[in-house]
Design a protein around this nucleic acid. Structure first.
Lengths: 106, 106
DNA sequence: TATATACGCAACCTTTCGGTTTCCAAAATT
DNA sequence: AATTTTGGAAACCGAAAGGTTGCGTATATA
């Protein structure tokens, strides 16, 4: 099984679910209404998202509300960090190029 | 076929390749030496990464150097943006809670 | 208590994924 | 010119993904 967060967000439906419940918790049935699939298919996606702890459940009677674990999303951000350093460096380099051009114009 | 960047980074080997060539361009053979698979398997990953424009080629004689298209990585960052807003809000809320506690102590 | 609703689980099916092996073409070396 | 090196393409394979249908169970409602 062995889920990881990158595999979880690879599926477009799962990404949409994440966005959907980001602001407020929702039940599987309510979520499924937003997509062109069965409730069971959505349920499967929710299971995968739960397995990698991207979402959590909150039972309320016979309903289960799924809520985004926003902190887990930061792990993606964390991975991006190493590249952010690179693209900022490139930006600085571009900045220097522009500065040089400006200098030459004088 | 229809590749997208999220599917591309879902595979751990592809993520490792991305990190590997982030700082300097490399040939398929050189990349493959870092992994426990065949060159052909790496070649397939490179094809997928190329298809979604995460990397680009630079021919040099009979060698092909693959280089990261750092700008494309920003698309992931862009998607995260909507959540960043949420987790910053939560942080502010937590901040308020802490401030309230501090106040009560006085 | 009988019925309706919410939901997960299991079985099944088709498509995709990631890997291997085999082969071919182009460039470099001898 | 013959050989070696680099690397992509195709055929094939087992495993996993994503979907569906059918079923069982717990809670709510009549």
């Amino acid at each position: 099984m062995r889920r990881d967060i990158f595999q979880a967000i690879a599926d477009p439906t799962r990404r949409a679910i994440i966005v959907l419940i980001a602001l407020q918790a929702m039940t599987p049935t309510a979520i499924a209404e937003h997509f062109d699939t069965t409730r069971q298919a959505v349920s499967k996606h929710l299971r995968i998202l739960t397995e990698c702890e991207l979402i959590k459940q909150e039972h309320k009677g016979r309903e289960i509300f799924y809520q985004l674990e926003i902190d887990k999303m930061k792990e993606i951000d964390k991975w991006l960090e190493q590249f952010r350093q690179i693209w900022e460096t490139r930006f600085i380099q571009l900045d220097n190029v522009l500065a040089t051009i400006k200098k030459q114009k004088k």
